[in-house]
């Protein structure tokens, strides 16, 4: 067991190194002169040269690579061109809204998608099933920001029951204000995620429901609810949890869009501000940050399989 855990943790290191190398090569192999692109249309030759030096593009490539990996190993994600602040500091300043939005989205998604998917599998072929499947296809087709604007239009502008935009920290404004401002972004961000998880839940519960032990449970007179909860859902848990982890990638992309639509000052907005300011080190640092978070979450999910299914022994 411990041997497996250690092996699995060590296995994430090569993936992280590959991500780091890829991000490193992206800047060096980009067509044209990235320093000139970052400097913008009105830059002088000195500006370009200064940015090139700041990005460390003047060293031999192997030296650059060594410096880069050593820097990352120390937990240093680089320094912003304009504010001159370390990217980790910038991330720290903007972490709270994004973290809370992500947590509320995951909670809401699981609470909605798992029961919906289970119900759809239980009533396979019925109108409920069709409705859930229709929702999951539609959820994959509507762009996140269009959905956000539709929700704003209906709930904030026409019905006037929720605030249009903004973020209120629960530590400053209290839980009520925080929750009111969080409802629309959470709804917006969770739709595509719900579509994904509901689909997966339906598929894996449907498969389990055909197992012999479900028939046995029915034969001994077990109630349908207990069959679904105790026999079907528990056995279907591993693939569902796996997809929840993989879906985080989808959510990270959605965070950038959602924070932009609802004017939330989180990490997603930090990405966009960096794009507009052409502050490439910040973009690069955020990519690494998000990728590492994604890899670590999926590592934790892998390691949690034994909790959901005691038959899995490492």
């Amino acid at each position: 067991m411990y041997l497996y855990v250690i092996k699995r943790i060590l296995a994430t290191i090569p993936v992280m190194v590959i991500v780091a190398l890829f991000v490193f090569l992206m800047l060096r192999l980009a067509p044209g002169d990235p320093a000139a692109v970052i400097a913008g249309d009105y830059a002088t030759a000195e500006d370009v040269e200064r940015i090139r030096a700041q990005l460390g593009l003047n060293d031999p490539i192997l030296v650059q690579m060594g410096k880069w990996l050593a820097q990352l190993a120390r937990g240093d994600l680089g320094t912003a061109i304009f504010s001159k602040l370390p990217v980790t500091t910038l991330i720290g300043q903007r972490l709270e809204p994004t973290l809370l939005l992500a947590l509320s989205t995951i909670t809401f998604t699981v609470l909605v998608a798992v029961p919906l998917g289970t119900l759809a599998a239980y009533k396979a072929g019925s109108w409920i099933d069709r409705l859930v499947m229709l929702f999951s296809v539609a959820g994959f087709s509507v762009p996140v920001f269009v959905l956000g604007y539709i929700l704003i239009y209906v709930l904030s502008m026409q019905l006037k029951i929720l605030p249009v935009q903004g973020y209120k920290s629960p530590f400053e404004y209290g839980l009520w204000q925080f929750a009111r401002h969080m409802i629309l972004p959470t709804l917006t961000l969770s739709v595509i995620y719900i579509a994904l998880i509901a689909r997966m839940t339906r598929a894996s519960v449907q498969e389990v429901l055909q197992e012999d032990y479900v028939r046995t449970a029915r034969a001994k007179g077990q109630s349908e609810f207990k069959i679904l909860m105790r026999h079907a859902l528990r056995n279907a848990a591993v693939p569902i949890v796996t997809v929840i982890g993989l879906g985080i990638a989808l959510m990270i992309g959605g965070v950038v869009v959602t924070e932009s639509v609802f004017n939330i000052p989180g990490l997603g907005r930090l990405v966009l501000d960096a794009v507009l300011a052409r502050d490439y080190p910040v973009i690069q640092g955020l990519i690494l940050f998000f990728s590492f978070v994604y890899i670590l979450i999926n590592l934790l999910i892998d390691l949690s399989y034994t909790l959901f299914d005691p038959r899995i022994k490492y």
Binding site: P14, V15, M16, V17, I18, V19, L21, F22, V23, M26, L27, A30, P31, G32, P34, V37, I38, A249, I252, G253, V256, V257, V271, V275, R278, Y280, I283, Q284, L286, I287, F290, S291, Y294, I295, N298
Partner: peptide, 28 residues
């Protein structure tokens, strides 16, 4: 392993970074 690494980078962020490096045209 390269593909695993590539898959752990959120697609939209990767695209944003690539475009901000090479300049935005239909091709890039």
């Amino acid at each position: 392993r390269t593909m695993d690494g590539l898959m752990s980078i959120p697609a939209i962020l990767l695209a944003i970074a690539l475009i901000s490096l090479s300049g935005a045209t239909l091709g890039t």
